[in-house]
């Protein structure tokens, strides 16, 4: 596992390095090297030497340097599609959102944050990095890619999917709703962990807390409720008993 820090200010670079080392020690995150540099060529060269999935902390505003953080990120993506990219910047709130999407960056970290908060942000990124490397498999994402819609969310975040008008679906997670074109039938095929508990509902089996037989609804772990059609009631019980369906 390898860690890259791309930063032109020597003092800040060293601070960042110390911070990363400290967090790695605390959580016993292993790494084979930490590369601190402000030179694009050096960073790109080193990518080939990495084992597993590397993490990159890139400063967006690099002075006197032709290649700034974003361009470097784009270049990294040419060689490494899985690596975790974190942008470090002075004004995270003004950071362009498009960057995040274009190089699928994990997050932005604001240099101006108070130390504890900054520490927490770095910690979060590094823990994510550790988890990714430990399982050593790509993220368990739920991907819809049809002629009309393309979307990607971590599967574990899905709560349920509901029809919402003709040929429109609403995918509901803890903190977002995604409205897109499609049918439940076609979405259901994408993942066996989705269960058709109702004519117009697909529920993530892993999110079910219990079945409220009186109201014929499934109560999810976060308290949301999803209706169950009469025909599926027995199957719901089966699933909750842990039997294969």
């Amino acid at each position: 596992m390898s860690i890259f820090i791309f930063e032109d200010d020597v003092i800040q670079a060293q601070q960042m390095k110390r911070l990363v080392e400290e967090i790695c020690e605390k959580h016993q995150i292993e790494f084979d090297f930490i590369e601190v540099t402000a030179k694009r060529e050096r960073l790109i060269e080193k990518i080939s030497q990495t084992a597993y999935i590397p993490i990159y902390f890139l400063d967006i505003e690099i002075k006197n340097e032709e290649y700034k953080g974003f361009e470097v990120a784009q270049e990294i993506r040419k060689y490494d599609t899985n690596g975790i990219i974190v942008f470090v910047t002075t004004h995270a709130e003004f950071a362009p959102i498009s960057y995040q999407y274009m190089v699928s960056a994990l997050t932005f970290i604001d240099k101006g944050l108070p130390f504890e908060e900054r520490y927490r942000m770095f910690e979060k990124s590094l823990l994510h990095y550790q988890a990714r490397n430990r399982t050593n498999r790509p993220d368990d994402d739920f991907v819809v890619n049809t002629q009309h819609a393309s979307l990607r969310v971590p599967f574990h975040s899905i709560e349920y999917i509901e029809t919402d008008g003709p040929h429109r679906l609403a995918l509901v997670t803890e903190d977002r709703v995604i409205y897109f074109y499609g049918t439940l039938k076609e979405v259901q095929m994408l993942d066996g962990r989705l269960f058709r508990c109702h004519q117009s509902y697909l529920v993530n089996k892993e999110k079910i807390s219990f079945y409220d037989a009186k109201n014929k609804t499934l109560i999810l772990k976060n308290g949301a409720s999803v209706p169950v059609s009469r025909r599926q009631a027995s199957k719901v019980r089966q699933i909750l008993r842990g039997e294969p369906s």
């Binding site: 009309h148 819609a149 977002r176 709703v177 995604i178 409205y179």
Partner: peptide, 8 residues
């Protein structure tokens, strides 16, 4: 049909 809206 070709539009997806994500609200978070």
């Amino acid at each position: 049909n070709h539009v997806t809206l994500e609200t978070s």
